[in-house]
Design a protein around this nucleic acid. Structure first.
Lengths: 185, 185
DNA sequence: CACAAGTTTCAATAATTATTGAAACTTGTG
DNA sequence: CACAAGTTTCAATAATTATTGAAACTTGTG
């Protein structure tokens, strides 16, 4: 990987610029690797990282070039990031090309991620658990009781997590910083 | 899938037994599907689910048979679950075969999962972030400042998450139920 | 020490998931 | 309405990840 990566154009040549570009590349890489171990595609995480550290909005073309991915991949990934609420379209008058900017407020970023995962996985899971927990059975069967206990415990955990996540999601900055951090940690 | 799954032997035939076995199968399936979307292999999640709803300890052979997986897969998966602290070996005097039981206390299960993921991913991430944040640069370069801001924000988030998770991990049942649930949710 | 009854390892393979890229589509403009 | 400049879709393919299963290993026993 060349040190002279075209990650940004500085107005005048600057000796520390290559290092900054390199640091950005490392950050994009870190995000990509971390993403995969949490069940998010590498590209999704990388595009997000790229936009997070890019002060200007980038076009699909820019994203393709900087991450060496195909047009189709860029298009799909960008659409998914919009779904999550993590990036926004930026339209420029007189241009047909679309540009994208990342939500830069990390608290909001966190809330978007929590919200998306909660509704995609936790809510679905709770529905299935509720349904399974309704299974009738005779309480004298120890096997039935054991199953029921595990199920009820997990349901309780899911409820608690749900409430905690909802709270974190709706938290305002002040609540988050003051009450939460100071009182709790 | 047959209703007469050999998930357990009840001492006497019981009309609700097939339904219970079916419910267990559904639960194992739910766990498997949920696992994959959080970056955990399907088999790992399924073996865990199987042992969670099994009142008796199961041998590798039992696990292979009930989930239709190979010996090698069962062996590796079981080892990984032990690593996570989610299941225990149970040795029976006079038998060479090993049996496995799941940790059934959901609070502990949660703590094990949090601990494992924290050390595997969060801690590694914090290390890389710290290193990247040290990048020197001139504060007059807006590009540098933007990058540094994002990095610092994410570091702060990582720290907060870390503290929150550590707290949840060490929480005792009473603290968890009382302080946490009542005061917070 | 030979064997039986298991467990573990790991290269080969299968299954899954992500990515490409060409074709179809969209939209604004002369 | 034809065309230019984009975006989106999706079947084919590539890359990744999980799984198999045979061989190597381990361990207790006659």
């Amino acid at each position: 990987m060349s040190c002279q990566m075209p990650l940004e154009k500085s107005t005048q040549p600057n000796p520390s610029a290559p290092t900054l570009a390199e640091a950005k590349a490392q950050f994009i890489n870190l995000w990509g690797v971390s993403g995969t171990s949490w069940g998010v595609s590498k590209t999704l995480a990388q595009v997000h990282a790229l936009l997070l550290v890019s002060p200007q909005a980038l076009s699909t073309e820019d994203i393709m070039e900087q991450l060496s991915i195909s047009r189709g991949n860029a298009s799909q990934t960008v659409r998914e990031l919009i779904d999550w609420g993590l990036i926004y379209k930026e339209l420029r008058p007189g241009e047909r090309r679309e540009y994208f900017v990342a939500e830069k407020d990390i608290l909001r970023v966190t809330q978007c991620i929590i919200a998306a995962r909660k509704r995609r996985e936790l809510d679905q899971m709770k529905r299935t658990l509720d349904q399974l927990a309704q299974l009738p059975g005779n309480d004298t069967d120890p096997d039935y009781r054991a199953f029921h206990t595990v199920l009820t415990d997990i349901q309780q955990l899911a409820d608690t997590s749900d409430k905690l996540l909802t709270r974190l999601m709706k938290a305002e900055r002040n609540w988050f910083l003051d009450k939460f951090l100071k009182l709790f940690l």
